[in-house]
Design a protein around this nucleic acid. Structure first.
Lengths: 391, 391
DNA sequence: AGCGTTAACTCAACTTTCTTGAGTGTTCAA
DNA sequence: TTGAACACTCAAGAAAGTTGAGTTAACGCT
């Protein structure tokens, strides 16, 4: 979901330049540092065009010179890299009880992250809090608003009034109106809104384990379980922005059909352990239970792995991704355990001898993944050529 | 899967023009006939640019003048339409025992369709047959090869060596090498290869019930059951071209987990009825059983509808499409019956009050859907702007 | 019926951006 | 030492889009 006007699909010199600029930035980002000729080959532009564009980008402060490198014959290569402070992205994760914010620089390094409790989950409170945080973050970091390229907002999906409405941890009052537009008006910035799983997937793609991957799926442990889908480098949103609602599909655990997220989610492990009289409220509780090899937790993990195996079969056969990443608000040890115990379906298009990536990998999880992913939405946009595909 | 070299991502005047041309063609195709100003508004180009492009396209024989229409004030609109004989697409569907071919004009009207039995399912036999058919079709229709814009090939997936290899009706010898490239070399044409479900989805989008839809799913009754996914107007292919292999995922029928296509496919109904001593070999047999309200068939239909309901839940929640279309090699009556009996999952992101399309619709099925879809792949390309999104 | 307004379209000048080809400088290898 | 390979720059040229003024036709108000 984006807050933009109708895209201008036609190409003219100006739009072509903008497109090519982003192409050059992306090519440089892809390899870290690069010279003109290399970029020209990667983009299909002439060296001269790349030269001109680079000189523009240097002027705009988006690139820095990175010394020369003499590689083989010929004139040594003058190299360029993304200038980290060439721009910033504001990432926001809205949860019912708190707002997480992050300011991230152009290469994806977090400059500052914060957690701000919410007085209430009211729409107006959220908007005020986010606005105040933006303001305070900018003054604290001494970064001008002009350097801000946009804001990414992570909100619990699904968006709009759907058959899943009324479940989980929703926020009241957002079913009407386009959230992206509302935030864009409040913040006076380009705004991108996604659910946690999609944002987390983008975070992994920008700076995590999914760097360089263009087609993958991300299973995100949030309150429930979400699925972020990246196809040809783009988030798969669906017609109404609600693709990836995997939590409610039925999977098999011990021959019984259950909703995936009733077997595989943070709420699920809490409920499962509560039935055994164990109260876990945070990740540390889980870690200590795991390190003491608590048999109830181990049982839950096995159930989760079983459910996950079914889910994996569905995801792989429907999307044929390069890999499936597991991450989110769950301790790394537990994710690793689940991954090790998850049977990789044999009857799957992903079961191919020539694979280069494992079928199931752990993400660089952490509490802030989704928030940083929110910021990554903005960066992704900045590095994505603008002349759009057909609609 | 496409047989092209690395795409030239950079924009230059020439590529911009090609992009804009396709934009204009698509805008005209979208509404049937259109004037310059209208196209300019739709594309974000100036009227003048559109004028120049239209004059080019007239010269290339891709457009025809379509008289004037005086709409309100102002100078009457000079209208243009796609010239049907401005180009042709060759569609091929390869099955183990026969090759189906179709020649389709620029607006999607079939000029000629054929079924050619195969002497064997050998790769070389197939290539020879397809080549001979292309030749014979061109001479019979008196259409020059220069007017051919490309060939679309439908082959049973999955492509490459996967965990699903060894099942169903595969063709031997295609697991190595890129089929698109092999056909491109044989036919000396741009070639697009997809599975039957994807091609059928494109057929529906070009001239069928999915006209104007950009995000939908197509459940295709072939030998098994395939899923064609269209996202933002493009076929979702997956990292290795095998997305949509839905037939092998587990669904619930009467509380039992079964593979979807063991409950919902042509093979499935044949097997089910065979167990009751009923032999059906073609669609007519099914139709007559249905019109006599055969209780075994009705039972199978109920099972199929149950399985489909599970599948629908998965498809809707993972893709959030505008609609799901059911079609392929199954009589319309039976499809309608299944659709009427399929419970629409309540817990689905597609269960929204503001829907405009039904959640489940019947495609304009027919024996040739996939073959015409093969041709539609070529047409789709011709109407899709070329400056690509990020990869 | 007359006349101003609206709208589509064309013409010609101008602008932006890309490409091309010649030229320069550096490095490696024979 | 010399020539080939390669990165890059300079200057000229080409392609395609935009802009703004001008033309034509239809509508609608008086």
């Amino acid at each position: 979901m984006v807050s933009t006007l109708k895209p201008q699909l036609g190409a003219n010199p100006e739009r072509a330049r903008s497109h090519n600029k982003q192409l050059v930035l992306r090519a440089i980002r892809h390899v870290g540092t690069a010279g003109r000729a290399e970029i020209a080959r990667a983009s299909g532009l002439s060296t001269q065009a790349v030269s001109n564009i680079i000189s523009d980008l240097l002027g705009e402060g988006l690139l820095i010179e990175q010394g020369v490198r003499s590689a083989g014959r010929g004139l040594p290569v003058q190299q360029y890299a993304i200038k980290p402070d060439g721009g910033y992205a504001f990432g926001v994760e809205v949860r019912p009880t708190a707002v997480f914010t992050a300011l991230v620089d152009l290469v994806g390094t977090p400059v500052l992250t914060r957690r701000t409790p919410l007085r209430s989950a009211e729409k107006s409170t959220i908007l005020e809090t986010v606005f105040a945080q933006l303001d305070s973050v900018l003054t604290e970091t001494q970064i001008g608003k002009g350097a801000l390229m946009g804001a990414g907002i992570v909100m619990p999906g699904p968006f709009g009034d759907t058959g899943l409405t009324g479940t989980d941890s929703e926020l009241p009052g957002w079913n009407t109106g386009d959230p992206a537009e509302i935030f864009a008006n409040t913040l006076d910035l380009p705004v991108f809104v996604e659910n946690d799983a999609n944002a987390a997937a983008m975070a992994e793609r920008m700076n995590g384990i999914a760097r360089g991957l263009d087609d993958f799926a991300y299973l995100y442990f949030g309150q429930g379980l979400g699925l972020g889908l990246v196809q040809k480098g783009q988030i798969l949103q669906g017609a109404f922005g609600n693709a990836g609602e995997i939590g409610h599909i039925q999977v098999l655990v011990d021959g019984q059909a259950v909703a995936l997220e009733s077997a595989t989610s943070r709420l699920s492990v809490q409920a499962f352990l509560a039935r055994e009289g164990l109260e876990v409220t945070n990740m540390e509780d889980l870690i200590s239970l795991y390190s003491s090899a608590n048999r109830h937790l181990l049982l839950w993990l096995d159930n989760a792995a079983q459910a996950l195996s079914s889910a994996l079969s569905i995801i792989e056969n429907l999307f044929d991704p390069q890999t499936v990443i597991l991450g989110g608000a769950m301790p790394d040890e537990l994710l690793d355990h689940i991954i090790a115990r998850t049977a990789l379906p044999e009857r799957s298009v992903s079961n191919r001898p020539d694979r280069v990536h494992p079928r199931l990998m752990r993400g660089t999880s952490g509490r802030m993944t989704a928030t940083l992913g929110a910021a990554a939405l903005v960066l992704h946009q900045a590095f994505t050529p603008t002349i759009a595909e057909a609609r």
